[in-house]
């Protein structure tokens, strides 16, 4: 009995003698408020249905991922996204496109029926991580579909890769670089969608039956 009491005390004492515990930190994008302002011209627009961004590979988790110099991947133990990054990327993308698209109103998919003429956007991100040399890396592929009659037709697709250097050291800077890079991807995507719209308007003008 005496041995048991001594052993228990030793365990408790050893717990008390451990060092300071590192705190877990959470990060998220700081979406610009001006991008979410009300648009009066939304009634007459067609809709862009944005599917939830898919993340593949090691980045498909809340822990922040970094590529280290010795080809190792570090999955953070104390630094996390405040929510799964696919939600962060999806919300940021929608807000960005909302402010940049001229003829389409972006809406999350399943929130409205897809009508003929609407566009559907799919994005697959296969890498979103810090990099020991490049700073932030975001790469993947996007797919733009158009609803024609009852089927979705793939209009265009392309891969993207964006690297953004860090302004300063630290996880906060890495998240900022991620946000900056993702906004750049969103911007180039909005330009592509606006171009697609122009092309289709021309086609519709020449071949009205296609739409």
């Amino acid at each position: 009995m005496r041995t048991f009491i001594i052993f228990t005390c030793l365990i408790l004492l050893s717990a008390c003698t451990t060092g300071a515990v590192e705190q877990v930190k959470y990060y998220d994008f700081s979406i610009q408020n001006e991008a979410l302002k009300f648009r009066e011209d939304s009634k007459n627009k067609q809709y862009l249905h944005i599917n939830m961004v898919e993340i593949e590979g090691a980045a498909d988790q809340q822990a922040i991922v970094q590529v280290l110099s010795n080809n190792r991947i570090n999955i953070a133990n104390y630094h996390f996204w405040s929510q799964h990054p696919k939600h962060t990327l999806s919300k940021s993308l929608q807000a960005s496109l909302y402010s940049k698209l001229e003829n389409y109103m972006p809406v999350p998919v399943n929130k409205k029926n897809i009508e003929p003429g609407d566009l559907v956007l799919d994005i697959v991100v296969n890498q979103i991580s810090g990099h020991y040399k490049s700073g932030s890396i975001i790469s993947g592929q996007w797919f733009i579909y158009k609803k024609i009659e009852t089927q979705l037709k793939l209009l265009d697709t392309d891969i993207f890769i964006n690297t953004t250097p860090l302004d300063e050291s630290g996880f906060g800077a890495l998240i900022k670089a991620h946000e900056k890079g993702w906004l750049e991807v969103s911007r180039s995507l909005s330009e592509k969608i606006n171009q697609i719209n122009l092309v289709f308007e021309g086609i519709n003008y020449l071949c009205p039956a296609l739409d």
């Binding site: 365990i11 050893s14 717990a15 451990t18 060092g19 515990v21 590192e22 922040i64 970094q66 280290l68 570090n74 953070a76 133990n77 104390y78 630094h79 810090g130 020991y132 040399k133 490049s134 700073g135 250097p165 860090l166 302004d167 300063e168 050291s169 630290g170 996880f171 800077a173 890495l174």
Partner: peptide, 16 residues
């Protein structure tokens, strides 16, 4: 669950 985490700290992302 009993003792404190002794997990090593995360490498800090360095400025490029």
């Amino acid at each position: 669950l009993i003792f404190d985490r002794s997990t090593p700290s995360d490498p800090i992302p360095e400025k490029s």
